[in-house]
Design a protein around this nucleic acid. Sequence first.
DNA 1: TGGGTCACGGTTTTT
DNA 2: CCGTGACCCA
Length: 679
Amino acid sequence: MEKILKELNEAQKEAVTHIDGPLLILAGAGSGKTKTLTTRLAYLISNGIPPSSTLTLTFTNKAALEMRNRALSMIGSVPYPPLLCTFHKFGLLFLKFHIDKIGRKNSFVIIDTNDKKRIIKSIDEELPPSSVASEISRYKNSLISPQVALERAEQVVYKKIAQIYKKYEEYTKENNLVDFDDLLALTYKILSEHQDIKEEISERYQFIMVDEYQDTNELQYKILKLIAEPRNNLCVVGDDDQSIYGWRGANIKNILEFEKQFKDVKIIKLEYNYRSTQKILNAANNLIAHNRNRLGKTLKATKEEGEEVKILHSQNESAEAASIAKRIKELINKGVYYNQIAVLYRINALSRSLEEGLNRENIPYKMVGGVKFYERAEVKDLIAYLRVVMNPNDDFSLKRIINKPKRGVGKVAMNKLENAAFENKSSIYQILQNRDLLKKLVTKKAYEHLTKFSDDLEELREKADEASYYLLEELERRFKLREFYASLPEAYEKIANIEEFMGYYQDYLKSNTQSSLEDFLNEISLESDQDQISDDSVCIMSVHASKGLEFDYLFVIGLEEGFFPLIGEGTDIEEERRLGYVAITRAKKELTLSYVDSRFFRGKRSNLTKSRFLKETGLIKGSLNLEKSTPYKKGDLVKHKIFGIGRVLSVSKVKREFKLKINFGGTHRDILANYVERI
DNA sequence: TGGGTCACGGTTTTT
DNA sequence: CCGTGACCCA
């Protein structure tokens, strides 16, 4: 342990060796946050604290995994390992033991956001399901019941949402479904209503640590408050300057007011940055200094001065992509590896032009983020099949697969089945087994399909236990899923995903011999892609997706007003600035900030001005001209979709747009600048 | 029921 | 511009 402590700087050491009492570690980007946290865990254990009485909470599985590996490498293997998991996993474990306290069975099924939207849509057709879903999330995270929501609602829309919320809660209870918010909300409910359970948990976890504390929401804070307060040993790590999830409920106040919310808080700032060059840190510090709502700290460089931060100015997105591709090629020729290079953007839509540019130069790249493996339709279908095998009365999953492959069950038949199930107070599966009734309900063809379907399922269920390893293959064989997906668009990819899932399932069974199918299903519902960035390709991703990562050579594109900062309804400019800060601090050696004069977005081209953030970093001097400027001048060659290629004769201003007089092979036309592209 | 066509709307993302 | 979903007809 002594040796390990020697590797830390003073502030880190102070944080690691602080044992009792609440501790707030303000850890700037690249300041050795994970190292400090994992070392502290090891330190506690080496000081005689039983590993099993510690609890370390993270937001992502990736972070949990990394911390676990690092901590275990320091402490070695122990019979009762420390609990180190995501907040939601903690909720899941808790509910498995205690959900019966609120009259529910622990065989619940976890539903994801898409499932949630589907349920909402089946309740209400008018309001956009995603808005309703996030509104319900907000209620749950503020512990507002449907009744209270209804009472408080003043506008008609909110009354309606409250009613949907009520029905949604009834539906999920009825079908024993638990959504992501419930994992926390129900945990809180049980903890707050059952003093004995709360005491038991507080007693068990006497030392609690939380990573990325700036991302906690109200509910997470309340849970922590309940279980940590008796012992008052709560150590949180975070960076208020990297709070970028306000829009999904993260409450930056949790970190800003931590000192007030717990007694005798000690605050330690980690300000030495071990990642970036001084020049890069200067840009980051300058930018974030423009925020008012912060605790305030300045990153100090430990690395060399480094090269100047580069500003790349291009006419449009294709020129931008071409320049970046060219620059990447140069780096590769100098011996840099692709995976030390990344390109970041504020919105995913900007990836397209970038991808085109990289493809043109045959630069291998990997898009981090995007559609998650377990969210892909075909994978979710398989999961639904497994869920039905496990519990045929899971109507929700059954509905997903009843017509996959097509069994002639459309909207009409589905309605009949659901109504029959409702009237008989049974599950849909039970209706399928009631052959006399089923025959009356659906067409002859559908009847034949459905009887075969339920017979197959029944046989599979009998076999499920003894041959779980072959379950998926058997499933595939009986329901001809491969054949079904082969007939759909993007068949190759879908089948590859199915095979990957099958492989994953068998691996899981191999390494978790004592686990049940149920365990497997619960496990994966909380898992997203574990993106490995190890293969040799350039990483391209949103700034959000880049959090926690670092790259030697970094490009940030789209630094234009409106795009970054992204201006829209409810823009929080300080959060945008924090995003800029996160983006910049991902760079280790070389940073290029890029902006364009004109960008094609959502089917139209618009003229843009450079982002205010460029000036705020201190990289561009002078006041920023927010007035739109034309990227065109007399003599430029341009291309029009219909008229083809022409040469600009003159530029004039009409309202806020620029009008160009263009010579298309002898014919002169007046055209707005937005409708042409520079070549 | 299900294939085909058209209109519409479209940040950021983890669990 | 591109993907999703509603709606219509065979």
